[in-house]
């Protein structure tokens, strides 16, 4: 079962929920798909066992065969190739690795090589198998790296995905294919505005979802009524608590010092499992 943890707005507590849920479950996988700013490891502190470069396929010109016909430039939808007399220029930041130039070159003068855009690290802690992608600074394209992190998902186990913020391609690439999506928000105008965008996005993707409200005020009936009247499934409220904020600031998952939350996260998982079972 794949459970992704996402949010429209950044900084609402995705990583907090993902890491604490993983620790509460024990035997599972945790994959950090926020490859621009991966943070799960700040809290999990897994022993990293392997580091591998993450690469994308990019064209390389064989000048023995190239006759500078310009076909590769014409078929590139991203304008990543320029053809001049005697020279082909390639702009790697614009390439989407679609393979059109390689496939359609009439003289078979293009072959694809690997270009490193980041790194994938794997490790473990307390029965949690950990995978994280790290995009190199200055690289533009997160989705290929996110797909590579997701290719490490083990079949027949519970995989928890920490997704990037927003509702555009990086978030969608991470969340797509999940059995359930936990949306994390905070009860502020910014948080609620972005929660709506995120709900619309997971609905569009056809993924069952539920919401965790982080930094909830104790007497916040308004939020509860609002969720009820809009039929938004509320999974869990994490209170606005100085202790939780302090533990967060030093990178300590709060279920350690606050063991009552272990049960709450297990109950959350149970609710999700039951929802997934009845979903088509």
């Amino acid at each position: 079962m794949i459970i992704s943890v996402a949010s429209g707005k950044g900084g609402t507590g995705k990583t907090t929920v993902a890491v604490n849920l993983a620790l509460a479950l024990g035997d599972c996988q945790l994959l950090d798909c926020d490859v621009e700013e991966p943070n799960a490891q700040v809290f999990l502190k897994a022993d990293i066992r392997a580091r591998e470069p993450a690469t994308v396929r990019v064209p390389e010109i064989d000048y023995q065969k190239c006759d500078f016909c310009g076909k590769c430039r014409d078929v590139c939808a991203y304008h990543a190739l320029a053809v001049l007399p005697g020279k082909v220029l390639f702009f790697p930041q614009m390439c989407h690795s679609c393979g059109a130039c390689e496939m359609l070159c009439p003289r078979k003068a293009i072959r694809e090589t690997d270009r490193t855009i980041g790194e994938i690290e794997t490790g473990d802690r307390e029965g949690i198998r950990f995978v994280q992608g790290k995009l190199n600074v200055g690289e533009t394209m997160a989705p290929p790296l996110i797909r590579q992190v997701k290719s490490r998902i083990e079949p027949n186990s519970v995989a928890i995905l920490d997704a990037p913020p927003g509702t555009s391609c990086p978030m969608v690439t991470a969340v797509r294919g999940s059995d359930f999506c936990i949306l994390v928000t905070e009860p502020t105008p910014f948080g609620m505005n972005d929660l709506h965008l995120a709900i619309d996005t997971v609905k569009k993707l056809g993924i069952p979802y539920g919401v965790v409200v982080n930094r909830a005020e104790a007497d916040d009936l308004k939020t509860r009524d609002y969720f009820k009247s809009n039929r938004i499934p509320l999974l869990l409220k994490i209170p606005l608590d100085r202790k939780i904020a302090e533990l967060y600031s030093i990178g300590t998952p709060f279920i350690g010092p606050m063991p009552e939350y272990r049960e709450k996260f297990r109950a959350l998982f149970k609710t999700i499992s039951e929802t997934v079972k009845v979903s088509p």
Binding site: G10, E36, E37, T140, A142, G166, I250, G251
Partner: peptide, 25 residues
């Protein structure tokens, strides 16, 4: 947020970037 395409498009050529952070690791 982040460091990818939209951030690079926002950043390139500005006169100053003010980074807002908070005291957490």
């Amino acid at each position: 947020p982040g460091i990818g395409c939209p951030v690079i498009a926002s950043l390139s050529g500005v006169d100053l970037a003010v980074i807002v952070t908070e005291p957490s690791l």
